Structure formats: structure tokens, C-alpha cells
Simulated scan of single mutants.
Amino acid sequence: MTLLTLTPTVRESPAQRRASTAADTLFTRHGVTPVTLDDVADEAGLTRDELTAAYPSKRELVVAVLQRWHGAWRRALDGIARDADDPRDEVLGVFGYLEQCFADEGWRGCAFINGHAELGRTDPAIAELARAHFADVEAHLTQLCARAGVPSHVAQALSLLVEGARVESAVQRSAQPARVARLGAAMLLSVYEPRTSS
């Protein structure tokens, strides 16, 4: 069995990109189970043969969609890092990015959370991809905490704020959870605010 990773080993072909973009749209809108390969082919403007040449199975499309989501997450973190001079601002920037995601009318929740809920019990590899993404989120926050002089265990709490906001935003169909989580993160960081000597 091929080891699945969050990062694709090769760049998508144009047909693969069309297919994974279409699958992302349909999986987000309907969930994975009801969507057929014919649905994806129609959405992508591909024939069934063109689709299966690009991605032979729906499972491979699910993996491609999760890799797309993880890639978008990592690119967002890179952008936050470029715009922030302080690691604390980077932490808060994560919640700003989430707010932008949640405000999008097409937002239906995190693909990793939704995918794990729908497929995690029956497909251990998909469940492992979700776990790897969550671990990556926490590892990034742990690095930011270390740079900010904040204990590493705070990253675990920040990670829970990220994932909790993702879940609640999908239920509420609101960006408000990101703002509440950002406030919680700011309060956590303030406990470890550097003290200046007078």
C-alpha cells in the first residue's frame, strides 16, 4: 500500500487540477459519499475516461482534495509569517485567516474534520491524513510559542481553539467563532507577556 502524505509527490496535471477542484467543490457541498465519479467528471468538464485517467478512484480524489487543503493552509501560514514581525502576531494572524475562511459563503467546515467524520472509521489512511494535519497545526503553533517565549503546552490550547472554531463555524455558518477564538488566544498569550523592568 502506498504511503499517503499531506504533500503531493508530483505536481498535478491540468486534468488532475480540474478534477480535484471539481471534487473539492462537490465534497464540500454534499459530502464525499453521495458524490459519484460521474458527478465529478460533469463538474470538471471532463469525460469519465479523462477523469479516471487523472484519478482512477474516488479515494484518490479525496486524498488530492485533502492535499489541496493542507497546501492552502501552509501557504496561508507563510503569508502570515511574511506580514508579521512578532510571533505573537503570527499566532493571532492564524485566527484572522480562519475568520476570512469562515466568512466565505462557500465555507462548510474543514475538509479534514469533515473527512475524518465521514470516512475516518472505515479508511484508516484518511484518518491518518487528518491526524497528520492536526499535528502539523499544533507543531506550527508550538514553534511560534517557542519563538515568543511562551510554554509549549500553550500551543495545545491554541490548537484546540483553532479546531473548535473550525467546527463551530461550520455549525453556526458564521465567522464569529474565529473572533472569539482569537480573543481566547490573545488572553492566553497575555498571561506570558514579557515583563519589562521599570
Results as ranks from 00 to 15, higher is better:
residue 35 V to G: 04
residue 183 L to F: 12
residue 16 Q to P: 01
residue 98 L to P: 02
residue 127 A to P: 00
residue 154 V to G: 08
residue 82 R to Y: 10
residue 43 E to F: 01
residue 24 D to V: 03
residue 136 D to P: 00
residue 141 L to R: 05
residue 177 P to F: 11
residue 52 T to L: 02
residue 197 S to M: 10
residue 65 V to F: 08
residue 183 L to V: 13
residue 81 A to C: 13
residue 197 S to D: 14
residue 192 Y to W: 15
residue 159 S to A: 15
residue 143 Q to V: 13
residue 62 V to G: 03
residue 110 C to N: 13
residue 4 L to S: 08
residue 186 A to M: 04
residue 107 W to E: 09
residue 45 G to K: 08
residue 98 L to C: 06
residue 46 L to N: 03
residue 171 V to Q: 14
residue 79 G to H: 10
residue 63 V to Y: 03
residue 7 T to S: 14
residue 67 Q to G: 05
residue 73 W to D: 12
residue 75 R to G: 09
residue 35 V to M: 06
residue 151 P to K: 01
residue 68 R to Q: 13
residue 82 R to V: 15
residue 139 A to K: 09
residue 198 S to L: 11
residue 86 D to G: 05
residue 14 P to D: 09
residue 76 A to F: 01
residue 22 A to G: 07
residue 158 L to E: 07
residue 29 R to G: 00
residue 64 A to C: 10
residue 157 A to H: 15
residue 151 P to T: 09
residue 130 A to I: 08
residue 193 E to C: 11
residue 39 D to S: 11
residue 101 C to R: 15
residue 190 S to W: 07
residue 16 Q to H: 03
residue 124 P to D: 06
residue 98 L to E: 07
residue 15 A to Y: 06
residue 103 A to M: 03
residue 79 G to V: 14
residue 156 Q to A: 15
residue 196 T to Q: 14
residue 105 E to A: 15
residue 166 R to W: 13
residue 105 E to V: 14
residue 31 G to W: 03
residue 192 Y to D: 03
residue 67 Q to C: 07
residue 121 R to W: 12
residue 101 C to G: 05
residue 128 E to D: 15
residue 20 S to K: 03
residue 71 G to C: 04
residue 189 L to Q: 03
residue 198 S to G: 13
residue 62 V to K: 00
residue 43 E to S: 12
residue 126 I to T: 11
residue 103 A to G: 06
residue 16 Q to L: 08
residue 76 A to R: 13
residue 71 G to I: 03
residue 135 A to P: 01
residue 127 A to W: 05
residue 110 C to H: 05
residue 159 S to K: 14
residue 139 A to V: 07
residue 134 F to Y: 12
residue 15 A to H: 08
residue 62 V to M: 05
residue 119 L to Y: 01
residue 176 Q to A: 15
residue 104 D to K: 04
residue 115 G to C: 00
residue 76 A to I: 06
residue 77 L to M: 11
residue 112 F to H: 00
residue 96 G to S: 13
residue 25 T to G: 06
residue 74 R to Q: 14
residue 78 D to C: 10
residue 182 R to I: 06
residue 8 P to V: 10
residue 193 E to Y: 06
residue 174 S to C: 13
residue 2 T to S: 13
residue 18 R to D: 08
residue 138 E to A: 13
residue 48 R to I: 08
residue 83 D to M: 12
residue 23 A to W: 03
residue 185 A to F: 07
residue 126 I to D: 01
residue 175 A to M: 11
residue 151 P to R: 04
residue 73 W to Q: 07
residue 174 S to H: 07
residue 106 G to H: 05
residue 40 V to D: 00
residue 97 Y to S: 11
residue 40 V to Q: 00
residue 36 T to C: 02
residue 31 G to L: 04
residue 181 A to P: 03
residue 132 A to L: 15
residue 27 F to W: 05
residue 146 A to C: 05
residue 95 F to I: 12
residue 79 G to R: 12
residue 55 Y to G: 02
residue 195 R to C: 07
residue 180 V to N: 04
residue 11 R to F: 03
residue 165 A to S: 15
